[in-house]
Lab assay of single mutants.
Amino acid sequence: MLEGKVKWFNSEKGFGFIEVEGQDDVFVHFSAIQGEGFKTLEEGQAVSAEIVEGNRGPQAANVTKEA
């Protein structure tokens, strides 16, 4: 698991990027966000996630919002 913060997230398109210190930004799709209801993230929000290899490079999986 790694910790980072949301760089930006487009709720209409359902994707965005997470900033991780010392690494390239990581793509995040709404389907990777854990929880019930409408899955979205806010800019600057702290999150933790796993990194997996997607079709277009590294992407976030099992994204959870930090308190």
Results as ranks from 00 to 15, higher is better:
residue 56 R to Y: 12
residue 8 W to K: 01
residue 7 K to N: 03
residue 20 V to K: 05
residue 16 G to W: 04
residue 62 N to E: 05
residue 41 L to W: 03
residue 31 S to W: 09
residue 3 E to R: 15
residue 10 N to G: 02
residue 27 F to D: 01
residue 4 G to Y: 07
residue 50 E to F: 13
residue 11 S to D: 06
residue 38 F to W: 13
residue 52 V to E: 07
residue 59 Q to R: 10
residue 4 G to S: 02
residue 59 Q to L: 08
residue 13 K to C: 10
residue 16 G to S: 01
residue 4 G to H: 02
residue 59 Q to S: 07
residue 61 A to D: 06
residue 25 D to S: 07
residue 41 L to Q: 02
residue 6 V to T: 02
residue 26 V to Q: 01
residue 63 V to F: 02
residue 58 P to F: 11
residue 26 V to H: 00
residue 28 V to C: 07
residue 2 L to I: 15
residue 25 D to M: 08
residue 6 V to S: 01
residue 42 E to V: 14
residue 25 D to F: 08
residue 55 N to D: 12
residue 13 K to Q: 07
residue 7 K to R: 10
residue 17 F to G: 00
residue 40 T to L: 07
residue 1 M to Y: 13
residue 24 D to Q: 13
residue 25 D to V: 08
residue 37 G to A: 06
residue 64 T to R: 15
residue 52 V to R: 10
residue 31 S to M: 07
residue 14 G to W: 04
residue 47 V to R: 01
residue 32 A to Q: 09
residue 21 E to T: 11
residue 39 K to Y: 05
residue 28 V to F: 12
residue 29 H to G: 03
residue 32 A to S: 09
residue 59 Q to P: 04
residue 2 L to K: 12
residue 10 N to D: 10
residue 43 E to R: 15
residue 42 E to K: 14
residue 57 G to Q: 04
residue 37 G to N: 06
residue 13 K to V: 07
residue 66 E to Q: 15
residue 26 V to G: 00
residue 38 F to H: 07
residue 27 F to Q: 01
residue 34 Q to F: 09
residue 35 G to E: 09
residue 6 V to Q: 00
residue 22 G to E: 05
residue 50 E to M: 14
residue 2 L to E: 04
residue 58 P to Q: 08
residue 37 G to F: 06
residue 35 G to P: 02
residue 7 K to L: 06
residue 60 A to R: 02
residue 66 E to M: 15
residue 18 I to L: 09
residue 48 S to E: 07
residue 50 E to H: 13
residue 24 D to R: 14
residue 66 E to K: 15
residue 61 A to F: 11
residue 31 S to C: 09
residue 10 N to A: 07
residue 46 A to K: 14
residue 61 A to E: 08
residue 67 A to S: 12
residue 45 Q to F: 06
residue 30 F to M: 06
residue 25 D to A: 07
residue 60 A to Q: 01
residue 31 S to T: 12
residue 56 R to P: 07
residue 36 E to I: 11
residue 51 I to P: 03
residue 17 F to N: 00
residue 33 I to P: 04
residue 18 I to P: 00
residue 34 Q to G: 08
residue 53 E to A: 13
residue 67 A to G: 12
residue 12 E to Y: 13
residue 28 V to L: 06
residue 41 L to Y: 01
residue 32 A to F: 06
residue 28 V to P: 00
residue 3 E to N: 15
residue 20 V to M: 09
residue 3 E to Q: 15
residue 45 Q to M: 11
residue 15 F to L: 04
residue 44 G to C: 09
residue 5 K to V: 12
residue 14 G to Y: 03
residue 64 T to F: 13
residue 37 G to I: 05
residue 44 G to H: 06
residue 46 A to H: 13
residue 42 E to C: 15
residue 34 Q to R: 10
residue 39 K to V: 08
residue 42 E to P: 03
residue 39 K to P: 05
residue 45 Q to K: 05
residue 36 E to T: 12
residue 12 E to Q: 14
residue 29 H to D: 03
residue 36 E to Y: 10
residue 40 T to M: 09
residue 49 A to R: 02
residue 23 Q to K: 11
residue 16 G to F: 05
residue 26 V to N: 00
residue 46 A to W: 15
residue 50 E to A: 11
residue 49 A to G: 12
residue 65 K to E: 05
residue 63 V to M: 03
residue 64 T to K: 14
residue 14 G to Q: 02
residue 62 N to T: 10
residue 50 E to R: 13
residue 49 A to S: 06
residue 22 G to D: 07
residue 19 E to Q: 12
residue 59 Q to A: 08
residue 1 M to R: 15
residue 23 Q to W: 14
residue 41 L to N: 01
residue 17 F to Q: 01
residue 7 K to A: 04
residue 63 V to R: 02
residue 15 F to V: 06
residue 10 N to Y: 05
residue 44 G to N: 06
residue 48 S to T: 14
residue 58 P to G: 05
residue 49 A to Q: 03
residue 14 G to N: 00
residue 58 P to K: 12
residue 30 F to N: 02
residue 13 K to F: 08
residue 32 A to C: 09
residue 54 G to K: 07
residue 56 R to A: 08
residue 24 D to P: 15
residue 49 A to F: 15
residue 53 E to V: 14
residue 5 K to D: 00
residue 35 G to H: 07
residue 1 M to H: 12
residue 12 E to H: 14
residue 51 I to G: 01
residue 48 S to W: 15
residue 8 W to N: 00
residue 45 Q to S: 08
residue 28 V to H: 03
residue 67 A to F: 13
residue 16 G to M: 04
residue 15 F to Y: 14
residue 12 E to A: 14
residue 2 L to R: 11
residue 40 T to H: 08
residue 30 F to K: 06
residue 46 A to Q: 13
residue 25 D to Y: 07
residue 39 K to G: 04
residue 18 I to S: 01
residue 7 K to P: 00
residue 51 I to D: 01
residue 26 V to D: 00
residue 16 G to D: 00
residue 17 F to T: 03
residue 61 A to M: 12
residue 57 G to S: 06
residue 65 K to S: 09
residue 54 G to D: 05
residue 46 A to L: 14
residue 17 F to P: 00
residue 38 F to N: 05
residue 39 K to H: 05
residue 67 A to H: 11
residue 9 F to G: 00
residue 48 S to Q: 12
residue 22 G to Q: 04
residue 9 F to Q: 00
residue 11 S to A: 13
residue 54 G to H: 07
residue 22 G to H: 06
residue 24 D to C: 14
residue 44 G to V: 04
residue 9 F to N: 00
residue 55 N to S: 14
residue 13 K to W: 10
residue 31 S to N: 06
residue 10 N to F: 06
residue 35 G to D: 08
residue 23 Q to V: 09
residue 19 E to D: 06
residue 24 D to W: 10
residue 43 E to Y: 13
residue 5 K to E: 02
residue 47 V to F: 04
residue 6 V to D: 00
residue 12 E to P: 07
residue 54 G to E: 05
residue 66 E to R: 15
residue 11 S to V: 11
residue 28 V to K: 01
residue 57 G to Y: 05
residue 62 N to I: 10
residue 51 I to S: 03
residue 1 M to T: 12
residue 31 S to K: 07
residue 35 G to Q: 09
residue 56 R to V: 07
residue 37 G to S: 07
residue 53 E to Q: 15
residue 52 V to S: 08
residue 26 V to I: 12
residue 40 T to F: 12
residue 30 F to Y: 12
residue 27 F to N: 01
residue 43 E to F: 12
residue 41 L to R: 01
residue 63 V to S: 02
residue 33 I to W: 04
residue 4 G to Q: 01
residue 23 Q to A: 10
residue 12 E to T: 13
residue 29 H to A: 01
residue 29 H to V: 04
residue 20 V to D: 01
residue 31 S to V: 04
residue 33 I to N: 02
residue 29 H to R: 04
residue 59 Q to H: 09
residue 62 N to K: 13
residue 2 L to F: 14
residue 21 E to W: 12
residue 36 E to V: 12
residue 51 I to K: 07
residue 37 G to M: 05
residue 55 N to Y: 14
residue 45 Q to D: 12
residue 28 V to Q: 02
residue 58 P to V: 10
residue 25 D to W: 10
residue 3 E to F: 15
residue 41 L to G: 02
residue 24 D to S: 12
residue 65 K to W: 09
residue 66 E to T: 15
residue 1 M to V: 13
residue 12 E to S: 14
residue 36 E to N: 11
residue 36 E to F: 12
residue 53 E to D: 10
residue 34 Q to K: 11
residue 48 S to M: 14
residue 64 T to V: 14
residue 3 E to G: 10
residue 38 F to R: 06
residue 33 I to T: 04
residue 26 V to F: 05
residue 44 G to I: 03
residue 29 H to T: 03
residue 37 G to Y: 05
residue 39 K to T: 04
residue 39 K to C: 09
residue 60 A to W: 03
residue 41 L to S: 01
residue 64 T to D: 06
residue 44 G to E: 03
residue 51 I to T: 04
residue 13 K to D: 01
residue 2 L to P: 03
residue 61 A to T: 10
residue 50 E to Q: 14
residue 67 A to K: 12
residue 34 Q to D: 08
residue 31 S to G: 07
residue 10 N to C: 11
residue 10 N to T: 05
residue 51 I to N: 04
residue 8 W to C: 09
residue 25 D to N: 08
residue 3 E to L: 15
residue 56 R to S: 09
residue 19 E to R: 13
residue 6 V to M: 03
residue 67 A to P: 13
